[in-house]
């Protein structure tokens, strides 16, 4: 297990290196410069500024410098945002994003598991129909539409929540709800399909024949077995929550990374864009690693390392 994780961490750095390289050169191919909307600068001034950021060097030299900086944990300095180091920028804005991201994942996953399990246990009843309806809503309404709807009704019209303010837990509720709809819908659909299957399997019948109550069968045997495939979709779901977060943070004016990402793109702020891309990749790889470890914990047949002995 330890060896496996070590190997995965090695891959993690390799992947990050490749991603950094690709984004670097893609950035360089983009039209426009970070200073293209600052028309008032003279050619002379522009030259000084470019030299200051090292943009007068050849692309290759810039690349080597960038990677060199990366190795020291330096993501460069932002062209905007008061010339702060990108790492500091991310650091300041990490907390709100992580909070609503994690909250949305937890609410979505647990809610989805419960909703899907309920639908499966009460298959072909009104409970199932209602659960299906809810999860299809969650799947089909984009998070930004939901964000706007929640904002309009709960915050603007009924004034239950603040419209766009970031201070306490309460202000995180609406963005969390907006972001959790998709994972909730996805997990619920997945969970229902899987659990219907599991409930009709032989080992569930045997569990019932042992004298377990219907509830005991679900709690002790059906849930865990149904969770196995659900774990595999946590990775892709984390991706959609992260991308959804970019827009949702803007709608609710949350000072998070997502909002910053959007701003940095509209202003061609290369170092910030790259820094954030690398940071997002890092997060995703970590999520996938955790998912793999979880998967092994839940399903003994694929325990990592020992490879099962069939």
């Amino acid at each position: 297990m330890a060896k496996y994780i070590l190997k995965r961490i090695l891959y993690l750095f390799l992947t990050l290196f490749i991603i950094a390289t690709i984004t670097f050169f893609m950035m360089k191919m983009l039209p426009g410069t970070p200073f293209s909307n600052q028309n008032r600068m003279s050619a002379e001034q522009l030259k000084i500024v470019k030299a200051q950021y090292g943009l007068d060097q050849s692309v290759f030299v810039q690349y080597i410098r960038y990677i060199g900086g990366l190795l020291q944990g330096n993501l460069g300095t932002s062209f905007q945002f008061n010339n702060e180091p990108v790492t500091a920028l991310i650091g300041q804005r990490l907390a709100p994003s992580m909070q609503i991201g994690a909250q949305a994942m937890v609410v979505g996953t647990i809610g989805g598991i419960l909703l899907g399990a309920l639908a499966a246990i009460r298959k072909n009843t009104w409970v199932d129909t209602l659960a299906t309806f809810i999860s299809i809503l969650g799947l089909s309404i984009p998070s930004f539409v939901l964000a706007v709807l929640l904002q309009f009704y709960l915050a603007y019209k009924w004034k239950i929540y603040p419209v766009a303010l970031w201070d306490n837990f309460q202000s995180s509720i609406l963005p969390t709800l907006a972001l959790s709809a998709l994972p909730l819908g996805t997990v619920a659909r997945f969970m229902r399909t899987e659990m219907v299957d599991v409930m009709s399997s032989d080992y569930i019948e045997l569990a019932k024949s042992k004298g377990n109550s219907s509830w005991g069968v679900v709690a002790k045997h059906a849930l865990r077995n149904s969770l196995i495939p659900v774990v595999t979709i946590i990775g892709p779901m984390a991706v959609s929550v992260m991308t959804g977060s970019m827009v949702v943070e803007n709608i609710f004016s949350i000072p998070g990374i997502g909002e910053q990402f959007v701003k940095s793109i509209t202003t061609n702020d290369y170092p910030t864009i790259m820094g954030l891309t690398i940071f997002y990749s890092f997060l995703l790889i970590i999520v996938y690693l955790i998912v793999d470890i979880l998967y092994g914990l839940i399903d003994p047949r694929i325990r990592l390392g020992n490879g099962g002995k069939e």
């Binding site: 399997s201 032989d202 080992y203 019948e205 045997l206 569990a207 019932k208 024949s209 042992k210 004298g211 377990n212 109550s213 219907s214 002790k220 045997h221 865990r224 077995n225 196995i228 839940i298 399903d299 003994p300 047949r301």
Partner: peptide
């Protein structure tokens, strides 16, 4: 009732199923 039957199942009357490959919970 089902509850009363639960007390007998696996206790007074128990059952062996046909397919040993699928009758055991793979995760326990």
């Amino acid at each position: 009732t089902d509850k009363e039957m639960d007390k007998l199942r696996g206790n007074k009357i128990s059952m062996i199923f046909q397919d040993p490959m699928t009758s055991l919970d793979p995760t326990m």
